[in-house]
Design a protein around this nucleic acid. Structure first.
Lengths: 94, 94
DNA sequence: TCCGTATTTTGAATATTATCTAAATAGTAA
DNA sequence: TTACTATTTAGATAATATTCAAAATACGGA
């Protein structure tokens, strides 16, 4: 399933997961340990992030390792910048 | 009521409203005319944006004029940049 | 004061989301 | 195969969000 990154980022827990992954990749268990939520709930959040391409997963035996995929943040960043930026002037050449 | 700007930005219609307001302020009616939704629905979206401080309102007689408030986008932009940016090096002085 | 226009608020239907527990799956090792 | 660990999936519930039609409010003008 395809997910809108904006929707994925709307949840505070999911943004905290991404911040955690910014430092280094973590296993699902390590991530779950950082929150007061059940492992099942964290797993659900991870799947939302995965469907939005904001994280990638690698398997190492029984263990799933999640890492941040910054490229999926690009559209969000562009949109936010476009709203913030002063009116674009016309390009000179081409 | 106080609103999380991330939540306000999660809705596509609301992001389109903000893009519209980037050009210039618009009345509620002008905004509603740009969408296939009822005026009541658009009014609801405007109130969500207002509660997230993403828009400001001025009254001109019966007419309410909405405009974009970029400053409320700052936290969103910072968070997105922080996730994207390379690991911060230690500051040299102070 | 009464009317018309612009807009919001209310009330209700429906859809989506967040969360939990319990059950299922995947992999490794005995 | 059986047992163990790591994690996800299923099923249920409660909270939140989107939407509309109808009613309410705000303002200016006749």
């Amino acid at each position: 399933m395809r997910r809108d990154p904006w929707k994925a980022l709307a949840d505070e827990t999911r943004r905290e997961i991404l911040m955690l992954l910014k430092g280094r990749p973590h296993t699902a268990g390590e991530i779950a340990d950082q929150f007061l939520l059940s492992a099942a709930t964290v797993s659900h959040h991870l799947s939302v992030l995965k469907e939005a391409r904001l994280v990638e997963v690698d398997r190492r035996a029984q263990t799933l390792i999640y890492s941040l995929n910054v490229s999926a943040l690009q559209p969000v960043l562009s949109a936010a910048l476009e709203l913030t930026a002063p009116e674009q002037r016309e390009r000179r050449r081409k």
